[in-house]
Design a protein around this nucleic acid. Structure first.
Length: 571
RNA sequence: CGGGCUGUGGCGCAGCUUGGUCAGCGCACCUGCUUUGGGAGCAGGGGGUCGCCGGUUCAAAUCCGGCCAGCCCGACCA
């Protein structure tokens, strides 16, 4: 490809709306353009990277025996009604009406369609199956952001395993786990596999592949010592015990104007945050519920949902608190509350002589003994782990890491197969419902994650496995015939050698060509200039390291292909 | 959905407070000449209903109201 023919609209300055590195650089380097919030056009270079990422995924899926298919992006409403998700998906599903008045939706995922296809399987002899597709998915995200990281339409590789029993599902799950590990390695993504919440999908195992990045939206906890890793939605840590002074007598006292844990700690002796009870009022599936945590602990809403089985949780508004308890937030407590469900975090178990709100504005209780004074309905793990807390496995300090979720695998079980009566006959002639697993990788998000992980102040530094082109030949001084001749020759030979190469044949100054090739992030550059050429040499520059070596003209192609092959072998 | 910010040629911005020779600057683009190892120089040139609608006014990019869009934080989110 000749740069003069290539559509790469590079920008000297990044558009103001781009904040995170991948968004800025993908825009500046001419890979993507936004059409609308959450909807991006992939320009030629962007599509090449996208395709390469998809190909890596495809190869590794094929390696574990998965078969590619392609399912419709538009689904009739009844399919989603039959699985119960027409309602539960809510506003996140794009819905429209066709000319006949029939309701349809743009698919956000394909469990239903797969379960329907799988009805063609009739015998245990025909399983296991792993089917995958790379398909455009649509989700009406409340807030698209960060370029390709969170969008409303995107290509996703999703695969589905179909098995007759749990052992088969376990095997399919493990195959995917291994395949995903290889995929992210090949993409140059330092993904960490973490235990995750299954969320609304249910299921018995759930692992997310997380790439550390400040641009991410999820937090994970990791132990550098023993390797424990989990999404904060599930993570646990050792909570060092707190010594409560004995002899607490329940006593109400005035706390005028005090509304926060910190203010109470400052005003009252023996009421440091870890010796207070934080009372949060939540509405769980419509039911007002008190949620109790240690004063210095944070609630994890996902744990609240997961551990109660509730479908929806939201903090109660002040009016609801007053109506339910007689006081506004800041003076709330669970002492003596018997008409509402009370959930308490495990870290409060056995605690005594604590301080908490008295359900009268400007009053608190001291001397509270959880066991004696509060009717706890259920003890649960509800708190969010904090940076530096001891690992439950080895006591090593846990680190909290912000990450991009690039992959998620989990066991669905029989929910969808049951909804569509997807059954097979087993060896005994008994009808058995298939069990499914679901395994996703966002292709565009992976592209962004690679950009996020591989760039410097000059631009992108693509790993060779996904680079839009592998090499660029840069002739310096288009007027020098020897330079032109050697450049064209090397360009032709590289193409013949199977290298994806561009020649920057533009009538531009060297600085422009260097800057553009670095911004775009092509891994190898061959610079042909009169200076080196006079001694029979050209320069070979590696984008990522910036290292330049002089090589004789006749060795250039061999050196470059060797370097590329070495890089690809590792990926 | 709550909070904050922003909409002026392709990109980055100034102008708005104090309405009127303000539609302007840098980059990009076009033509010509020169130039060619890190985003060239000179000369000439093209391009903008100032997000949209309405109002105030002799006069609106500028003031007022409404709407729309985008970005950021939070909530939400297989």
């Amino acid at each position: 490809m000749r740069w003069s023919n290539l559509f790469v609209p590079t920008l000297r300055e990044a558009p103001a709306e781009a904040e995170v590195a991948s968004h800025r650089l993908l825009l500046r380097a001419g890979f993507i353009r936004q059409l609308h919030s959450g909807h991006y056009s992939l320009l030629p270079l962007g599509l090449r990277v996208h395709d390469k990422v998809a190909d890596v995924v495809r190869q590794e899926m094929d390696t574990i025996g998965a078969q590619e298919l392609l399912l419709p992006a538009m689904h009739p409403a009844w399919v989603w009604e039959q699985s119960g998700r027409w309602q539960s998906m809510g506003d996140e599903m794009f819905r429209l009406t066709d000319r006949k008045g029939a309701e349809v939706a743009l698919g956000m995922t394909h469990e239903e369609v797969i379960a329907l296809c799988a009805r063609e399987i009739h015998s245990y002899r025909e399983v296991p199956q792993i089917w995958y597709q790379i398909q455009w998915k649509f989700r009406d995200e409340p807030r698209p952001k960060s370029g390709l990281l969170r969008v409303r339409e995107f290509a996703m590789k999703d695969s589905y395993s179909l098995d007759i029993d749990d052992a088969g599902l376990d095997r399919a799950f493990d195959l995917h786990h291994a395949a995903y590990t290889r995929i992210f390695e090949r993409l140059g993504l330092p993904a960490i596999a973490v235990e995750a919440s299954s969320g609304a999908m249910g299921g018995s195992a759930s692992v997310e592949f997380m790439v550390p990045s400040a641009a991410g939206e999820d937090d994970i906890v990791r132990c550098g010592n023993c390797g424990y890793a989990a999404n904060v939605e599930r993570a646990i840590a050792v909570v060092p015990p707190v010594d409560d002074p004995p002899g607490g007598v329940l006593e109400r006292f005035a706390t005028p104007g005090i509304r926060t844990i910190a203010a109470l700690a400052a005003a009252e002796a023996n009421a440091s945050p870890e010796r207070q009870i934080k009372t949060m009022v939540y509405v769980l599936d419509g039911q007002i519920t008190l949620v109790l945590l240690r004063g210095d602990h944070e609630l994890s809403e996902q744990k609240l949902l997961d551990n109660t089985g509730a479908a929806a949780a939201r903090p109660a508004v002040a009016e609801e608190c007053v109506a339910a308890l007689g006081a506004a937030p800041g003076s709330l407590g669970a002492v003596g509350v018997t008409d509402l469900p009370v959930l308490a975090d495990d870290a409060l178990a056995g605690r005594s002589n604590l301080t908490t709100g008295a359900n009268t504005d400007d009053f608190h209780f001291r001397g509270v003994d959880i066991q004696r004074d509060i009717s706890v309905g259920e003890w649960l793990d509800l708190r969010q782990v904090r940076h530096g807390e001891p690992c439950t496995g080895c006591e090593g300090p846990l680190e909290l890491l912000r990450c991009i979720e690039t992959g998620h695998i989990f066991k669905l079980g029989r929910r969808y197969a049951e909804a569509f009566e997807t059954t097979v006959m087993d060896a005994e002639g008994v009808s058995r419902t298939l069990t499914m697993g679901s395994y996703g990788i966002g292709i565009g998000r992976a592209v962004a994650a690679v950009a996020e992980t591989h760039h410097d102040e000059r631009g992108l530094c693509w790993p060779t496995s996904v680079a839009p082109y592998e090499a660029v030949v840069v002739p310096i001084s288009g007027r020098d015939e020897a330079v032109t001749e050697v450049s064209e020759r090397i360009y032709g030979e590289l193409r013949d050698a199977g290298v994806e190469v561009i020649i920057d044949d533009r009538d531009a100054r060297p600085g422009v060509k260097f800057s553009d090739s670095e911004l775009v992030g092509i891994p190898y550059r061959v610079t042909v200039g009169p200076r080196a050429l006079a001694a029979g040499n050209v320069e070979l520059t590696e984008r990522a390291s910036g290292n330049t070596t002089l090589v004789p003209v006749e060795d250039a192609v061999a050196s470059l292909t060797a370097a590329r092959d070495t890089a690809l072998a590792v990926l």
